[in-house]
């Protein structure tokens, strides 16, 4: 059930800074990213300065500050995937989509993110698109994957 920002925030007690991370996670789950309005609203609810919240949120890789694309692509950058060439896959994706890691394409179809480990170390490099795993991807297979997704979009 979709919820408004106020509903999400009001589930947490006022002035309790400890609830910052769960609240931010709730907001990200609901809206896909953290926008400035949400951060300022959270700050006034938990009595935390906006700079502090932004500082904490940027510390964690899980928080995004730009909206997700229709296809949210996660590239595994764990050690095993790195050994099997995930760095090249990430660079190739950045080249194809013409965006940097952590950003969203202008048409809003794709967003790209690097994550630490997805737990599928035997099948690296692993790429996850909207919850769907793609194993042992290579530069050429990733190209066809993107083309397919583009057609579907």
């Amino acid at each position: 059930m979709p919820q408004t920002l106020d509903e999400l925030v009001s589930r947490y007690k006022q002035g309790v800074p400890e609830s910052l991370l769960p609240l931010l996670q709730d907001i990200q789950d609901e809206f896909g990213f953290l926008n400035e309005e949400a951060i300022i609203r959270v700050g006034s609810h938990l009595k935390l300065p906006a700079s502090k919240i932004y500082g904490i949120a940027t510390f964690f890789d899980q928080f995004r500050f730009v909206t997700q694309g229709r296809y949210h692509i996660l590239v595994c950058r764990g050690t095993a995937c790195h050994m099997s060439g995930s760095f090249n896959v990430l660079k190739e994706l950045e080249k194809i989509l013409k965006i940097k890691e952590g950003h969203t394409t202008r048409d809003g179809y794709f967003s790209l993110e690097a994550v630490s480990c997805m737990g599928a170390c035997g099948m690296g490099p692993v790429v996850k698109v909207n919850g769907e795993f793609h194993k042992m991807v290579s530069n050429s297979s990733i190209q066809t994957l993107i083309e397919q997704l583009r057609k579907r979009a």
Binding site: I39, P49, A50, S51, K52, I53, Y54, G55, F59, F65
Partner: peptide
């Protein structure tokens, strides 16, 4: 506050 982490960390105001 500190923004980001690791070698990308910098000091700056909110956002």
């Amino acid at each position: 506050d500190f923004i980001g982490r690791g070698n990308k960390m910098q000091v700056g105001p909110a956002f």
